[in-house]
């Protein structure tokens, strides 16, 4: 973990209620895809945890966030040059060593961004990456072209069929893969959990107090004991997940 000031390079709308924020500062505490940062926003008491979309792990961090409340709305109004107080290097990361040759990435909405950094790393390692990216509707689709430019085979799925395939990500994950990585809203994670075969991992969200393991606000039960989503998570292996009833 590191705590430092970052400068905003850009903060632009890229889809409906969706912004890409690029910041410059000390990014050396970041270890790998799956990790998140925790941003202090003027007027808000708690920081806002947001997963990292990509980083050079030196000075540059990109996140993509949705405006879901006052905090993220305030963040969306910030301008290039503005300063942000950010905790970096939080949480664990995806296990790249388990991916096999043909990993499958399954993302939904605000859960898509961390899979992009993962895709970059997997492609760099010479893997054949397939990404199934789900959104509600055409206006909310983002990053699909970026995955394609990386060389991934991309299937875009929208609930209303306004772009790509119609339906849910679970309708398009049946082809063989060596391992899967999944990030998205909890109902999607559960549906994927019931559909997938083989091994893989899921990235979780929870309301957090501190984001670095001190407050025990985001704990969950797992097969291997209690875990903090912010510290031993947000990435959990499929085999260790115990769903909340």
């Amino acid at each position: 973990m590191n705590s430092s000031l970052f400068q905003i390079v850009s903060n632009d709308a890229i889809a409906k209620n969706t912004y890409r924020l690029e910041i410059l500062g000390d990014a050396k505490a970041l270890k790998g895809p799956g990790q998140f940062i925790n941003i202090r926003i003027d007027g808000m008491f708690l920081r806002r945890p947001i997963s990292v979309c990509t980083s050079d792990r030196k000075e540059r961090i990109t996140v993509i966030y949705k405006t879901v409340g006052k905090g993220t709305e305030a963040l969306s109004r910030m301008k290039p040059g503005d300063k942000l107080d950010v905790l970096t290097g939080l949480g664990n990361s995806y296990d790249l060593s388990s991916s096999g040759d043909k990993p499958l990435l399954i993302g939904g909405g605000a859960g898509v961004p961390p899979l992009f950094w993962l895709a970059e790393e997997l492609v760099k390692d010479g893997k054949t990456v397939r990404a199934v990216l789900g959104f509600n509707t055409k206006e909310e689709v983002f990053l699909a072209d970026d995955f394609e430019r990386l060389g991934c085979e991309v299937t875009v799925v929208t609930v209303d069929g306004s772009l790509g395939r119609k339906g849910f990500v679970t309708d398009y994950i049946l082809r063989p893969y060596t391992y899967f990585y999944c990030c998205g809203p909890e109902p999607m994670l559960k549906a994927v959990y019931r559909t997938v075969s083989g091994s893989g991992e899921f990235s979780f969200e929870e309301r957090m107090g501190c984001g670095f393991g001190a407050c025990m606000g985001c704990s969950c039960r797992t097969v291997t004991g209690y875990k903090r989503i912010c510290r031993e998570g947000p990435v959990l292996k499929k085999e260790e997940i115990l769903w909340k009833e």
Binding site: M44, F45, L46, G71, E206, R207, M208, G209, C215, M216, G217, C218, S219, C220, R221, Y226, K244
Partner: peptide, 22 residues
């Protein structure tokens, strides 16, 4: 284990926690 989640809520100049002595 403590209480079920969500255990945290934002407030003006403060927060609510319901960790439940985990």
């Amino acid at each position: 284990f403590g209480n079920p989640t969500p255990r945290i809520a934002e407030c003006t100049a403060g927060m609510i926690n319901s960790v439940g002595l985990q």
